[in-house]
Amino acid sequence: MGVETRGAGGAVGAGVRAAVVGAVAGVALLPAGAAQANVVGIGNAVFGNTCVNQGGARAVGSTAAGSGVVGGDYAGLPLSLPRNHCGNSGIVCTAVFMASV
């Protein structure tokens, strides 16, 4: 599983990482690669609203929690997890919804 960081080259604190690893059980996907976007959902470049991890965040750790439980069902939220910045070319990330407010 990829653990994201906030800021270029920064690292999520150990407590945050532990919370995430403990709460989310998923398969480990491959790290690193090209920046792309597609057209399938919210947070979506084609809506002009791409939001990628601030500072080009990359997976800095890889693990398999292995609990077999879908994350979040039994655990609390990882409240110390930071919210990454997103890019802004004049519209913010969920501007996709702003038109309908």
Binding site: M1, G2, V3, E4, V20, A23, V24, A25, G26, V27, A28, L29, I42, G43, C51, V52, N53, Q54, A59, V70, G71, G72, D73, Y74, L77, P78, L81, P82, R83, N84, H85, C86, C93
Partner: peptide, 29 residues
């Protein structure tokens, strides 16, 4: 229920723009 909790958890990750974690979570979900 568990599905509802998992959805809310995914929304937490997504709205925090932790997209790798969100993707990992969705795979399991």
């Amino acid at each position: 229920g568990e599905r509802q909790a998992s959805l809310a958890y995914g929304v937490f990750l997504h709205t925090h723009r932790q997209y790798r974690l969100t993707a990992d979570h969705l795979v399991a979900h």
